[in-house]
Amino acid sequence: MKLSAAALPSMPEGDHQDHVIPGLIFRVGKKRRTWTLRYRIGDKYSRDTLGYFIPNAPAESESMGLAEARAKAREMLGRVEAGVPTVEEKTPHPKESGGKTVGDVADLYEKARIKKGGKGTKTLPEALRTIRRVLKDYLNLPAKQFSKADLRKARDKVAKNAPQMSDRFMSYFGTCWKWAAQEDHVDYNFVSDTLKVGPGLVKRERVLSPDELKAIWDACDGPFESTNGVAYGRMVRFLMVMGQRKMEAGKLRYGDLIDGRWKQTEKQNKSGREHWLALPPLALELVGEGKANELVFAGEKAGVIGNFSQLKAELDKLSGVKGWRHHDLRRTASTHLQEQGVPPHVIDAVLNHAIQGVGGHYMHGALNKVKSEALAAWEGELAAILGKDARKAQ
C-alpha cells in the first residue's frame, strides 16, 4: 500500500516502504506506529528510529506525520553523507515523553476509585464509559498534552446533539482530571475552569405531528431482527403512551408494576422522589406479563436494551420520520395535555418534574388520581390518532 498522510491511521500491520525517500519505513505494530530509516555506512546497514505516529493526535502534539518523517529522513541522510553521527539520543515515544496517556489516566482513575469504594462507585461504570466515548479520539494522546482547547472541542461536539450528555461528561471528567492532577499525571485540572454549555445551547422544541406519531408507531412493528430490536419497538410505543424518560422505561421490571400501576422509587428516577402512574390499557398490553425480577423490555441475554443509537437510526428509516429524539415523545405528550386544558402542575406531575423554588419545600402531594386521569386522556387522544388497531400490542 502506497504511503500517504490520509492512509497512515488505517495501514495494516507490517513494514511499509516510502516511495519518495529510500530507506524510510513506516512500521505498524500491534500497539505502536513507528517511523524508521534504514541506511548503509560502508558495508554495514543501520536502522534508526525517527519518531512515532499517533492517530487522531492534535496538531500541537509530538506525533510525527508523513511530511515530518520525510524531512527528518532527509536530514539524517545528509548527516550520513557528511560522516557525522545520525542520532544523538534515543527518540522517545510520545507516551514515554509525556507520561501516561488520557486512556491510561482513565484506567488508573477507575482502579483507584474501585479500591477506595464509597460514594460514587455505583455510577463509576457509566462515568468511565462516557469519558472514553467522548474522548475516543484522544485516548492515545499523552495526558499532559491534552489541552483545554481539546476539551472544549470534545464538549461542543457532544453538545450539538446532546447538551445534557455534554454537561454530564464535564462533571464526570472533572472528577477524573482532579484526581489526575492530585496524582501528578497532569499539571493541573483545567476542567473546573471550562464552562459547561448547558442544555440551552441546543433548545429542543420538536413536537411530533399526528402523522409522525402514527408513522413511528407503525414502524415499531417493523422487521427488527434482534431481541434488542423487538424490545426496543415495544419500548418506544410505551414511551409514546406514558411520556416518561427513556431509561426509566428501559430499566422497568415487572416487580415495579403493582395492580396496573408503575411504581418508581426515589432512586429510580431523576427527580429523586417516589412516583406512581396508572397504566392505561394501551400501555398494559405493551408490557405483558413476566417474573418480578425480569425486565419488561429485555434485550439480549435478558439485559437492558443495547445499541439505542443504531436501533433509533433503523426506526427512522422504517418510519420516514427524521430529526426526532426519544425525549421529544415527552414533549409531545405534555403539549397535547396542555391543549386539552390539563393544568400545568398536573402535567409536571405526570412528567415527574421536580418542583422548583419554595414550592418544592411546601408541596409534597403525589397527585396520583389526577395524573391517572391526565394519562388516560392522552391515551384516548393517541388511540384516535393511531386508528382502530392502536390497541393491538406487539
Rank of each mutant, 00 (worst) to 15 (best):
D150L: 10
K116S: 15
R33Q: 15
D167N: 14
E381T: 13
P125A: 00
A112G: 14
F238Q: 10
I131D: 13
Q17G: 03
A377L: 04
P125L: 05
V358M: 09
R204W: 06
V134E: 06
G198F: 01
L337C: 00
F224D: 11
H326I: 06
N228A: 13
L8R: 08
D137S: 12
A73V: 03
Y39P: 13
G255T: 05
Q182H: 10
L3V: 11
A106Q: 02
F26L: 01
G29T: 13
E88I: 15
L135Q: 07
V84K: 13
A376K: 10
N307M: 00
L282W: 04
V370S: 08
C176S: 08
E205M: 03
Q244T: 15
K30Q: 13
A143G: 12
E75R: 07
K90V: 15
D328R: 04
L257G: 10
T332M: 00
R70S: 02
R325L: 05
Y362I: 10
D187Y: 01
M1E: 06
L8M: 11
V207Q: 11
E88D: 11
P163M: 00
E300I: 02
P55C: 07
L213G: 09
G65Y: 01
P94K: 03
R38F: 02
V207W: 06
S309N: 04
R33E: 14
Y232Q: 00
D389E: 15
R273A: 02
K369L: 14
R38T: 15
I355E: 12
N140T: 13
A6Q: 12
Q310R: 12
M242S: 10
G118P: 11
M76E: 04
E89F: 09
G387H: 00
Q264D: 05
A106D: 13
D104H: 08
G174D: 13
W276R: 01
A82R: 13
Y172W: 00
K203Q: 14
V202I: 05
F308E: 09
K369P: 00
G233W: 01
S147W: 09
S309L: 00
P55S: 00
C176Q: 12
A67G: 07
V186L: 01
R70V: 07
A7I: 06
S209T: 15
E379Y: 00
P210K: 04
R129L: 14
W262E: 10
A57T: 14
E13C: 00
R33S: 15
I305Y: 05
A383Q: 01
M64C: 09
Y172V: 09
I54W: 02
G250C: 07
G260H: 05
D328Q: 03
A127N: 13
W324P: 11
A292M: 13
M363I: 10
F146A: 10
P12F: 05
D48Y: 01
V350L: 08
D150R: 06
